[in-house]
Nucleic acid binder design. Structure first.
Lengths: 248, 248
DNA sequence: CCAAAAGTGTTATCGCTACACCCATGA
DNA sequence: TCATGGGTGTAGCGATAACACTTTTGG
């Protein structure tokens, strides 16, 4: 934050900071998706050396005219065609040799999307692939660390905020929602209590239609009450039992 | 994350990424302190143009051999003499023109310290000054945004994790602790319920001595049970009533 | 002996968990 | 008709908030 003391003229543009270690700034995206059945993560295969053919998060360098969030949006759009998805900054990573080529600071973002909404799009046009959250391959650099951190973050955040709805399609059943929670927390949840909790949250609107694929009796579809969802997004809503043991 | 395709030799060190917009990476620190009575923030006056004499967070550019956390530690040490304090990454800021001189990404960290422990140190040797949290001056660049975010973050985190103990001296009274919570949340808390909550947390060890400065009857001093503190740091401990309306 | 802060006791309420039980339907 | 998953009812427990009340001591 200190200026070169020799540059004292009044034209702001002519100030320069004294030489600093050259650093690149990148953005990497951890993209979580749910297909109504399984929780997945979207990865790309590196096409170039070094680490060619290794799996990696989607990333790119920031450009001159954009902020970090916009960079994440651009990278997401360019690599997957995704737009207007839930996107949140996770953490900045800056270990000196995390990228062996050049010193690069990476700001990690995570995204939550409904896989079905973008299915063909991603698989056809881009070199990306969905992996089961627990069967993802090893990633380059410190990307595995980022993914772990992102998993913890969504566990932590989803314990009190309804972010997991971002992973669901417009209409969904409560058993689907429960299944999603169970996968995120890798835990079995009592369905009877879960149903009541979700209903009493007031966030959902029951539809007339039933899903008959997953059970004989069928489960009613629900949709989000967008207004209440937005209003309650910041408030604490606890859908999972015993949230005492979550990591940061 | 893409490599220059022209550089294909096997020596990793010789790979280079194609030209990127030159970017500097800085670390800025939001330092919260408590003197047993009031919650404060530590600021420095910029000694150089531009924005000379304006108040600012402590910051500096990262150096070649250190990671972001180490940079924050170094900046803290260099500017205040502080060492071994609670330090946590807040967020990375990267709006293109946030620093008018050169494009600079700043990774903000926040620190929590006991003011009295370092009192002379900071005031004598360094050009830093403590401000009441609600009476701090306007800061340069986007530092006000960082401070707001940091305030929200400690409110959020302290609602469930005992981080505020980091602001207290080795021995402290429960009324002091309550006062601290009241300042962080800008709210009045029922002292009778607060005392019981804190005691039942099992985190504190009651000392024989009493503080007689702040009341006639005097309040017992307590100290942290370090072992239980560490063990319970990640678990949810709610000392404040109605934590429903906290921001992110 | 009074004010003021520290601290204890008591109660009603609420949300949670556990679990018995009913419902709807396809095979 | 039975197995299966969807869903309701209910009872007990534990944490919380509200607040009446007691303790201690300096002025």
């Amino acid at each position: 934050m200190k200026l070169d003391e020799k540059t004292k003229d009044k034209t702001v543009k002519t100030y320069k900071y004294p030489k600093q270690a050259p650093t690149l700034v990148a953005v990497d995206c951890i993209i979580f998706g749910y297909d109504g059945d399984q929780l997945k993560i979207l990865l790309v295969k590196r096409a170039i050396e070094p680490q060619k053919d290794q799996w990696s998060l989607m990333g790119g360098f920031i450009e001159a005219a954009e902020n970090l969030y916009q960079a994440a949006e651009r990278i997401l759009l360019k690599n997957t065609g995704l737009k207007n998805v839930y996107l949140e900054q996770l953490k900045a990573y800056g270990t000196p040799d995390r990228d062996p080529i050049e010193r690069t600071i990476s700001v990690a973002y995570f995204a939550l999307i409904d896989i079905n909404k973008y299915k063909e799009q991603i698989n056809d046009a881009y070199h990306a692939e969905w992996f089961l959250i627990n069967e993802a391959p090893q990633l380059i650099f410190d990307h595995d660390k980022m993914v772990d951190k992102a998993k913890n973050r969504i566990r932590y955040k989803a314990a009190f905020h309804p972010i997991l709805f971002e992973l669901l399609p417009k209409k969904f059943t409560i058993p689907q929602l429960q299944n999603l929670y169970e996968q995120v927390y890798n835990a079995k949840i009592d369905n009877r209590n879960f149903i009541r909790k979700v209903n009493s949250s007031g966030l959902l609107i029951k539809l007339a239609e039933k899903d008959r694929f997953n059970s004989k009796r069928g489960a009613f579809y629900y949709k989000l009450d967008e207004k209440k969802y937005k209003a309650k997004f910041q408030s604490f809503i606890n859908f999972i039992p015993n949230p005492e043991n979550l990591i940061s």
